[in-house]
Design a protein around this nucleic acid. Structure first.
Lengths: 115, 115
DNA sequence: ATGTATACATAATTTTCTTATGCATAATAG
DNA sequence: CTATTATGCATAAGAAAATTATGTATACAT
């Protein structure tokens, strides 16, 4: 993840959003998609990604299907019904988060008391 | 911080931005300001805040001045010269981060191939 | 042959936060 | 008048989420 620690805590939401959008994806595909969308800014490391996927699966938010493509293993993940519901919540939280951070960076101008 | 872990990693940037904007602030004041700006959404806990302030000071980004107001102790923090430079970088990173997250949540629509 | 890309995985460590305390003064509510 | 809330600082134990460093394996390009 480059050098910015701001992305900490957002990985699960990113994964779930991408799966909501694309139906099903495998791990490596997710890393490449994120790299593309963020213009190379965000590089998800395997050490973060795979444990995150396993945990989301263990929590019942993801289902997995193993396939062999070109003699290489792929684990396709997709949202469960429960995962879809959870994704809605997480995306709402993310939008709230972004709004709050924008208010912090770019605070509403103080009312102009000059009159 | 409520229940959302999205704020992980953003505390230092928040502190530095507020100090840049307000000149100098003390810890408790920072928690109240953040609560206000985020409409109660983000409650910075003391267990997170004070260690963060101490670390920023140790890193040479903050200076501290102790004052007694109403017989109560206050530690006013302000950005050092180095801290001001660092704040510029961190805010740029934050804006980049927000842009990237928005691109993930709200991806550019696929070109309409219907013609 | 060597490196890069694809594809998964885990272990050790670090960073960052939560939760739980602790101390102390001032103001408010019962 | 006493208990709670607000103000103000601090730290320690533990959890959560990441980084860094490995490890395995196939395919392709130099």
């Amino acid at each position: 993840m480059k050098n910015s620690q701001l992305y900490k805590g957002s990985l699960n939401t990113i994964i779930m959003k991408l799966l909501e959008e694309n139906g099903r994806m495998y791990g490596y595909e997710i890393t490449q998609k994120v790299k593309l969308i963020t213009a190379g800014e965000l590089n998800i490391t395997e050490g973060a990604l795979y444990p995150a996927l396993h945990k989301l699966e263990a929590d019942g938010f993801l289902d997995v299907e193993v396939e062999k493509v070109d003699n290489r293993l792929r684990k396709y993940y997709k949202l469960t019904e429960n995962g879809q519901k959870e994704t809605v919540n997480r995306l709402a939280e993310l939008e709230e988060f972004i709004r709050n951070m924008q208010n912090l960076v770019n605070p509403a101008p103080k009312p102009d008391l000059q009159f």
